[in-house]
Simulated assay, not measured.
Amino acid sequence: MKPKILAIIPARGGSKGVPRKNIRKLVDKPLIAWTIEEAKKSKYITRTILSSEDPEIIEVAKQYGCEVPFVRPLELAQDDTPGIEPVLHVVDQCPGFDYIVLLQPTSPLRTFEDIDGCIELIFKNKSPACVSVSIADTSPYWMYTMQEKEQLSPLLTNEFFSRRQDLPKVYALNGAVYVAKVSWLQNKKTFITDETIGYVMSESHSLDIDTEEDFLYCDWKMRKGVQ
């Protein structure tokens, strides 16, 4: 039997880094629309819903065909609300699904192929959770902490690499796709444990919009077709 998969797009109104970013125009449509449209192209997602407390975001999401079955409680839309809490709230409000896919609207370059690739990997490996990652642009093997009197101390002290080509590949969460079995997520209350596997996305699809500079750069990339 084909598993039932619920996609959640979380979008609260109180963005600080880029005010009202979720409904701000990116190229020719609101930021959130790019994620809604890619989710709807997925061949695995059964249902896509928005979780938001903001009436304007809700209206925009509906215009682009996203379901909004409830309004997120205000206590789950605060600056200090742990990111997993709105997800678990959705799970309670929308029972009957086998898997959850979390798609943050701040990753507008993520494609439906990335979404489906992450889902396929979790099926292939029979894992309880899979998250998207990209190759880190800065290696922790070349990072330092600063001690007293500005003395540098290697972050990782077990090995030293003098040439970039010798550095081990390291990966960073890119925030684009999170997938997990519902029962497992309800138990663990996180997508990241030692059971979680990683789906490698290209750097060009991994841009996460957190600042005004990120937004402007993403807009430029999309207008110019830069990969």
Rank of each mutant, 00 (worst) to 15 (best):
M1G: 11
K2Q: 04
I5F: 10
I9R: 07
I9L: 03
I9Y: 06
P10K: 14
K16C: 03
K16N: 05
P19G: 09
N22F: 14
I23L: 06
L26T: 02
K29W: 06
P30H: 03
L31T: 07
L31H: 02
I32H: 02
A33D: 00
A33W: 09
I36V: 15
A39R: 07
S42Y: 13
Y44R: 14
T46G: 06
T48N: 00
I49S: 01
S52Y: 08
S52G: 00
D54V: 13
P55E: 04
I58D: 01
V60E: 02
A61D: 04
G65Y: 14
C66P: 13
V71T: 15
L76Y: 15
L76S: 00
L76F: 15
A77Q: 05
A77R: 02
Q78H: 00
D80P: 04
T81L: 11
P82K: 09
I84Q: 01
I84E: 01
V87K: 15
L88W: 10
V90N: 06
D92I: 13
P95M: 07
P95R: 14
D98L: 13
Y99K: 12
I100M: 08
L102T: 07
P105A: 08
T106K: 05
S107H: 03
P108C: 05
P108M: 04
L109F: 10
R110Q: 05
D114K: 12
I115K: 07
I115A: 05
I119A: 02
E120W: 06
E120V: 08
L121T: 09
L121P: 10
I122K: 09
V131R: 00
S132C: 07
S132L: 07
A136R: 15
T138H: 11
S139W: 11
P140A: 00
Y141G: 06
M143N: 05
M143I: 04
M143Y: 02
M146P: 08
Q147L: 10
Q151W: 04
L152F: 11
L156S: 01
L156P: 05
L156Y: 12
E159A: 14
E159W: 14
E159G: 08
F161Q: 04
S162T: 12
R164T: 06
P168H: 10
P168Q: 11
K169T: 04
K169F: 13
V170R: 11
A172K: 14
A172S: 13
L173Y: 11
N174V: 13
V179H: 06
V179L: 10
K181R: 11
S183V: 07
K188A: 04
K189H: 11
T193R: 00
D194I: 09
I197H: 01
Y199N: 03
E203H: 12
I209Y: 09
I209G: 02
I209W: 04
D214A: 03
L216P: 10
L216Y: 14
Y217A: 10
C218A: 15
D219M: 14
M222H: 08
M222I: 12
R223Y: 03
G225R: 07
V226K: 15
